[in-house]
Design a protein around this nucleic acid. Structure first.
Lengths: 149, 149
DNA sequence: TAATATCCAAGTAATTTGCTTGGAATTAAA
DNA sequence: TTTAATTCCAAGCAAATTACTTGGATATTA
């Protein structure tokens, strides 16, 4: 039941991006340096985030990434699902095209997995980037503009 | 965020054991056959469950496993944590000796992981084997005594 | 035209998962 | 007393997954 580095790095990187969102486009290199994540690996994560329409990019020199929406409209859930896929604990209760199971209609344990899935989604969908930015400023009042989150 | 087969097989096997709890000791062989799980692999799972005091065993011919407590006292949470370890999505919020992190006191994302951890535990701790047995009988009124769950 | 970026597809080492194998110890029944 | 059934235990191992790295092609600005 562990998140992979994709999910963890992804939320970190998106929070970094949100905190710097007033500065225009942010190159991955700067996020990678601040958060101590491989830039090449971040590329892969941002490709997924872009495909989901969570960030937008501009190529070339002085290019970089920006949030595609306001921070209060981007949930941790959207970020995590973009990077990790469904947060369902078992494939038979994935939201879209759940894995086939011939006893699905009489399966008892399925209800457990669904409840877990729904509660996890509920939690992560209730937290937005705006919440995280505010929490960050509260916890780190001294650091003008951020290091490692 | 997926459960491994340990957790999934474990809950299945424990439900099977609960349904057959009136029959005395149940050998793993019969659970393995009914649930279509490798008997040798089940041995490893039941070693963990026994270490946690969730099942008890009798060795030798006519031996087998039994629930160590009444079904209403055994939660899905206890089973899953015995088999999967902490259900925390990130090691820094494991209940006992969380992984060290030098920015733990100023970490924003930690709150997300804690909320997920707590909700997941809440769900699985609210479901007992008794609930599952009742649900099973409701969903499978025809099958006198069980096949694949 | 040089530097800075995103974009994209493979490759790969380390780790984890999901078992299997091979036996030793214990117990009940024949 | 032997045999069969069973738990107990420690290793071994192939396949899959993870967490990257490598090596470019393409786009944009200075």
């Amino acid at each position: 039941m562990k998140l992979s580095t994709k999910g963890r790095y992804g939320v970190k990187a998106m929070l970094d991006l949100a905190i710097h969102s007033s500065e225009g486009h942010i190159p991955l290199k700067s996020i990678a340096e601040r958060q101590n994540i491989s830039e090449n690996y971040l590329e892969q994560l941002f490709a997924l985030l872009r495909k989901e329409g969570i960030v937008k990019s501009i190529r070339g020199a002085q290019g970089g990434y920006m949030l595609a929406h306001d921070p209060q409209e981007i949930t941790v859930g959207a970020i995590l699902r973009a990077l990790e896929g469904s947060l369902a604990p078992v494939d038979c209760v994935t939201e879209n095209d759940p894995a086939y199971c011939d006893r699905a209609d009489r399966c008892v344990t399925k209800f457990i997995w669904k409840k877990i899935r729904d509660k996890v989604n509920e939690v992560v969908d209730s937290i937005t980037l705006k919440d995280l930015v505010e929490e960050y400023r509260k916890l780190n009042p001294d650091e003008g503009y951020m290091y490692y989150i």
